[in-house]
């Protein structure tokens, strides 16, 4: 995360609180402004935790309704983006807890332009991601959320702790356990093993 000058951070926090207050009072223009401002962050959070998912539109809807219903509780201690992403995290968490084992009759795949010179690499990433999320489907929800936000999405442990309402130590432990479990499953899957290594390298790069 880049450092934000204190004055700019204060302005941003004040603008966020103002927007939240207007949303809370039922100002429809403000609610639309909030939707436009945070929609990509909310979508990204859901996608990082759940992967490609046919229920994504329903989950976005659920997230935004939860956001508007609890916006009166926004105090400006984190940015609106992070606060809304926390709510999306809870929605994703609840979804993992309640959903049945995937029957997956439809293959929902990301789109790749046919003339993209990088297409082969994108396909490899897609296959690796498919295996990663299949493995994540089989581990504890708390560990999965922590791993997805910290390792796949590249957020700091402190930010993940804030988003999940846990301590940094707890998040670190969950990520460690998730990684162990995934590595165990990757022993028979070289593609997954290589991908986990790549993600670990990327995370080390983020941490440096």
């Amino acid at each position: 995360m880049p450092d934000v000058p204190p004055a700019a951070a204060s302005d941003r926090a004040s603008a966020d609180r103002d927007l939240a207050a207007r949303c809370s009072s039922g100002d429809r223009a403000a609610q639309r402004e909030l939707f436009a401002r945070v929609k990509q962050a909310v979508h990204r959070t859901l996608f990082r935790i759940l992967g490609s998912n046919r229920d994504i539109e329903d989950l976005l809807q659920e997230s935004f309704i939860a956001i508007y219903r609890s916006i009166h509780g926004f105090r400006g201690e984190s940015s609106l983006n992070t606060w809304c992403s926390s709510i999306a995290t809870r929605v994703a968490w609840a979804y993992i807890e309640r959903r049945k084992p995937a029957a997956a009759p439809l293959e929902l795949v990301p789109e790749v332009a046919t003339d993209d010179p990088d297409a082969e690499r994108v396909y490899a990433a897609r296959e690796a991601a498919r295996r990663l999320y299949a493995a994540l489907d089989r581990i504890d929800a708390k560990q999965r959320v922590a791993f997805a936000l910290a390792v796949i999405d590249g957020r700091s442990l402190a930010e993940v702790a804030e988003m999940t309402g846990a301590t940094t130590v707890a998040v670190k432990t969950r990520v460690w356990r998730a990684r162990n479990e995934l590595n165990r499953r990757a022993r028979k899957d070289s593609v997954l093993a290589m991908y986990l290594t790549d993600l670990a390298d990327a995370q080390e790069g983020n941490d440096e």
Binding site: K39, S52, E57, L60, D198
Partner: peptide, 28 residues
């Protein structure tokens, strides 16, 4: 040299966003 990064976030079409937005505000 060809390390794979995190899976790209699949973009939602404008129509999908329009559906989500319409449903959210209808609910509200």
């Amino acid at each position: 040299p060809d390390r794979l990064g995190p899976p790209p976030v699949e973009a939602l079409s404008d129509l999908s966003w329009a559906r989500v937005e319409r449903a959210v505000f209808a609910e509200l």
